[in-house]
Nucleic acid binder design. Structure first.
Lengths: 209, 209
DNA sequence: GCACAAATACCACTTTTGTGCTATTGCAAA
DNA sequence: TTTGCAATAGCACAAAAGTGGTATTTGTGC
């Protein structure tokens, strides 16, 4: 007596942990809706495989560039990330990298299945424009702190903006048509005022990290 | 001869400025897709009205508390905010208050119509959990460029993150319990891969300026 | 006119970085 | 099994950055 599945979605799973991977395999094997067409430990396994495009991809990988690679291999398959990161520091980047949704690792099996189905049925979707807006909004937080702005002179800000480009003293000097020693002097004064001891720290402090 | 509208969405508009409100009224009156079912100057006008739930709400109000009130009155209607120059923290807060999207005030009429349609048709939506994550992630926002991500090894990324703090070799070495020479080697390899010649340039390239 | 800050400049010195070599170990893919 | 890369480490030298001192010019405010 065979059991026929009603709505069957193909799913690719990339999960490093062996036990967890097996658990997920069982979950999908016993579900009526999903059929695993690819089960991988790491992204590079996926790279060298010739797995056909699944309807959806589920992965525990949270490294941004690896997520990007998965997205490159299956550009049209929605990508769901399993994460234990409660603070969600990386979540923005994960969405930016192409994730469609995410699931907390400790969630119940039904949460996994329901979230995946929701994503597939397009009930939840985040538009690129919204993501862009959010990222843009966040990056424009990188404005100088008021205190820092107040204590630096105009010229010091000029210098700082050139420091931000990674230019060496010599080029800053040439750029502003002043002597290298003057640039050094300005830098020294900047570090002194911001109470830091090198370029990177100064930039972090001035531009808000 | 009457003109029948094809897809007609109901829309509520809350805009303080009289001229602008009239402009929007005209825009929607002449559009085929929207029918204004509520036109208000302020939020308290909306409160005392008995306007039925519209398909979508458009408002110029950017005060977080008032936005929250609108959201309370029409909990199921997506809310689109018209904003002049709001950047940074504020936009994230607007999303947190329940906004589905926003439009810059100076935008072309078609931008208004298209954005509203996008919100309605694409089910553009951000879940609360994502908003919380975004708020939590805040300033610790580093978004490496995909190309840069692909070529750096895990260890090199470790190093880069410490470089970003402005730490000298010595402290990076101590931090990772490896020798200074190894740190120098990693840095050299990083610069080589990113095709830059110092820390600041590397950080700009990797973290997207 | 004088005081003061900002911008300029030079010198000397130390520390940190950046670059070019070589070389070993371990792991994973071909 | 061999090949290749990641990670480790050492050494030497050149280049740049950072720190201290002093000093001149210029413009603004009192």
């Amino acid at each position: 007596m065979t059991q026929s599945k009603i709505t069957e979605y193909t799913i690719a799973v990339i999960v490093p942990d062996a036990d967890f991977r097996e658990t997920l395999k069982m979950l999908f094997d016993y579900s009526f809706e999903f059929e695993i067409t690819g089960l991988f430990k790491k992204v590079n396994e996926l790279v060298s495989s010739k797995t056909p495009n699944p309807d959806i991809v589920l992965t525990e990988i949270t490294d941004i560039d690896e997520v990007a690679i998965i997205k490159k291999i299956f550009p049209s398959s929605p990508l769901v990330i399993i994460t234990g990161d409660e603070t969600g520091e990386r979540i923005v980047q994960l969405f930016a990298a192409g994730a469609a949704h995410y699931i907390f690792k400790g969630s119940e099996p039904t949460v996994y299945l329901n979230t995946l189905k929701e994503v597939l049925e397009e009930k939840v979707k985040i538009s690129d424009s919204v993501i862009k807006s959010l990222l843009a909004a966040k990056s424009s937080d990188n404005k100088p702190t008021p205190e820092a702005l107040a204590i630096l002179t105009l010229r010091e800000k000029d210098i700082l903006n050139l420091l931000a480009k990674g230019l060496p003293y010599k080029e800053i000097a040439h750029n502003l048509s002043i002597s290298i020693d003057t640039v050094r002097r300005h830098c020294f004064n900047i570090y002194d005022k911001l109470q830091v001891s090198n370029r990177t720290e100064a930039l972090n402090k001035y531009f808000g990290k």
